[in-house]
């Protein structure tokens, strides 16, 4: 307990005494975590937008002529049972005709009136099927086509394939960049601590001569590393939170015409992941960087 108290006191004192090194290390971690946070926010928002776009890409299922409502219901249940099917909406022949009239004869109702009570789309009731991941669209279409009572399946394969591939590409690239940034952070914090250790080489040697254990010597450096990591994590979080609110507010305020496509993830939702992630990464690299440097020095 006394060793822990000593480590805490000395670790805090070390940060003050090595202000420049500490600031450099905090700055390095803060810069890396800011970039990490920025990437995360960009990627998560992009994925959110892609997901919304994907949700709009549906598959339309038409039935054989003269099919009964019970058979249609059964087909609906089979479709719902498929993996990655998120939503199935039934469009009756009447709704289909109404929608068609709205789209084609809006303002020219006299033309549609010529049809009277006749529904030219009486055999065009359908299911609109929405998927949670459009990359599976081809497989789902194939499955539905084989179902009894299904006449035709309409899908926009090109849009689905492009969105799916682009989404995967962005995920891989961003994961690669984030891993690279983390490695750079670990290297930089470890170098900063190593410089700090070189400066205090004498102090460590004196402590070793008077019987200090490795833990006693390591503890202040570990406390220092963890506190630096913590500070390096909190700064970019505050900055990102502030900037996110401002930028999203600005875009939604000035580009309302794009609001259908530009849908943003809420800040609370972003920080539910970003806060523990940044704190864990900051504290983790602070601890690991100082631990590896001190251990290396003590083993020499």
């Amino acid at each position: 307990m006394r060793t822990l108290c000593y480590g805490l006191k000395q670790g805090i004192k070390n940060i003050g005494q090595n202000r420049l090194f500490s600031l450099a290390a905090i700055g390095t971690i803060a810069a890396c975590l800011f970039l990490l946070g920025l990437f995360y926010v960009l990627v998560s928002n992009f994925q959110h937008m892609v997901f919304n776009a994907e949700s709009a890409v549906g598959v339309t299922v038409f039935f054989d002529e003269g099919i009964s409502q019970e058979q249609i219901k059964k087909i609906g249940e089979e479709i719902r049972a498929c993996k990655t099917v998120e939503k199935v909406v039934y469009i009756s022949a009447e709704e289909a005709w109404e929608n068609f009239q709205k789209e084609m004869y809006s303002g020219e109702e006299q033309i549609s009136d010529t049809f009277g009570d006749d529904n030219p789309l009486k055999d065009s009731s359908s299911y609109e099927v929405y998927l949670s991941d459009v990359s599976n669209q081809a497989g789902i279409v194939h499955t539905i086509e084989k179902m009894d009572g299904v006449r035709k399946v309409n899908s926009s394969g090109t849009v689905a394939d492009s969105l799916g591939s682009f989404n995967s590409l962005i995920t891989y690239i961003s994961a690669g960049i984030i891993v690279l940034l983390l490695l750079v952070s670990v290297f930089l914090i470890s170098s900063s601590v190593a410089v700090g250790i070189r400066v205090r080489k004498d102090e460590i040697s004196i402590m070793q001569h008077i019987g200090a254990t490795d833990l006693f010597i390591k503890l202040p450096f570990l406390v220092e590393g963890v506190l630096i990591g913590l500070a390096g994590a909190v700064i970019p979080l505050v900055l990102l939170g502030f900037l996110y609110q401002r930028i999203v507010g600005f875009i939604l305020g000035h580009f309302s015409v794009l609001s259908r496509w530009l849908t943003f993830v809420g800040m609370a939702e972003e920080f539910r992941v970003l806060l523990p992630l940044s704190l864990a990464v900051g504290v983790g690299i602070g601890f690991w960087g100082s631990f590896s440097s001190v251990r290396k020095h003590l083993r020499q």
Binding site: Q17, D202, E203, S205, I206, Q208, H209, I210, G211, A212, T213, D214, F216
Partner: peptide
């Protein structure tokens, strides 16, 4: 470290911590 606690050491250059 535990063995060294049974010794006292004095050096030519004093080796006191300046801070």
């Amino acid at each position: 470290p535990y063995y060294r606690r049974s010794l006292g050491v004095v050096f030519q250059e004093f080796r006191l911590l300046d801070d």
